[in-house]
């Protein structure tokens, strides 16, 4: 068969639109933001690109690094919990009958069809002082008081406006990002390997840890990355569910571009985030390379 790259005309025609798209909507704007990060504001509207590193110096201030570390911590915890929760879901989907599989996939995808803002408001009405959980707990409490238990007055649980609320919100939003790549990886898995493992005397847990997890590693890595990155830059969830201490880096960036009118500093902060993201891709690349090497032996 002929290599499709040999047909230069066909190659050019098919490659031109995506390349153009990539250049216009990614390379050009990102380069602009990157250039801004080396600039300074002049007057009320202007930005002069002067090649200064002052914005990065400001971004490396211990205070900003604290915010960044907090964001990494929140996103990391979210990713970990998503991974633990998503693995059994993906596994169950893999072994379900085709019909159930379609339904389960649908259930995972369904929240995507609703706007994030509306889903976040839904979380507020679930977690609020007079929200679903608290009013449910209050009903149970009143029931217990009704049958004569000495329970005291009902005190609503503070579920909203704290870090727990932010993490619950982020897990809710990002779980599908973890389930889907895991499912894709597990579904491709050769089931006979699992049967062999079980036949040869390994328990279920051992089979999962020693057969399924290593084989699904690329899916796990992909899931971790596409969960962690948006969680790290999340804006709406911490803004709406967080308390006074839950400042994440995206809110800081937003303020620089809007009210603070300090685009160069905002750009430097954005790129700091990009560099962290990039670091994750490098780590992933190393894992892939490692896996390829092991596969070669």
């Amino acid at each position: 068969m002929q290599d499709w790259r040999e047909d230069r005309k066909f190659f050019l025609i098919t490659m031109a639109p995506p390349t153009l798209w990539f250049v216009i909507f990614f390379v050009v704007p990102m380069s602009l933001v990157w250039l801004y990060s080396f600039g300074e504001t002049t007057g009320l509207i202007g930005v002069k690109i002067s090649g200064t590193f002052a914005n990065y110096a400001r971004a490396l201030d211990p205070l900003i690094l604290t915010v960044l570390l907090d964001s990494v911590w929140i996103a990391g915890l979210t990713t970990l919990i998503c991974l633990i929760a998503a693995f059994p879901i993906a596994l169950a989907m893999t072994f379900a009958s085709p019909k159930t599989k379609a339904w389960l996939l649908m259930l995972i995808m369904l929240p995507f069809w609703t706007n994030l803002l509306i889903r976040t408001y839904a979380m507020i009405s679930v977690l609020g002082t007079k929200g679903l959980i608290n009013s449910g707990a209050e009903a149970v409490h009143n029931l217990l008081v009704g049958i004569g238990l000495p329970m005291g007055a009902f005190a609503p649980m503070p579920l909203l406006y704290n870090q727990t609320a932010v993490i619950i919100g982020l897990i809710y939003v990002h779980l599908p990002f973890m389930v889907l790549p895991l499912y894709a990886a597990l579904d491709r898995l050769d089931k006979s390997l699992i049967e062999a493992s079980l036949d040869l005397g390994a328990g279920h847990f051992q089979t999962i840890m020693r057969i399924v997890v290593p084989l699904a590693l690329p899916g796990i890595v992909a899931g971790v990355i596409i969960t962690f990155i948006p969680a790290l830059g999340s804006y709406l969830t911490p803004e709406m569910l967080g308390g006074p201490n839950d400042l994440m880096i995206a809110s800081l960036i937003e303020r620089q571009f809007k009210r603070a009118n300090d685009w160069p500093f905002g750009a430097a902060l954005s790129f700091l985030l990009m560099y962290i993201t990039l670091a994750f891709f490098i780590v992933r690349g190393m894992i892939d390379k490692d896996a390829a090497k092991r596969g070669g032996h």
């Binding site: 303020r255 603070a260 300090d262």
Partner: peptide, 17 residues
């Protein structure tokens, strides 16, 4: 002016963090 605005923004960041 922008300098005053920035001063308050930075103070707010410290308050929030």
């Amino acid at each position: 002016g922008p300098d005053e605005a920035r001063r308050i923004e930075e103070a707010m960041t410290r308050v929030k963090a």
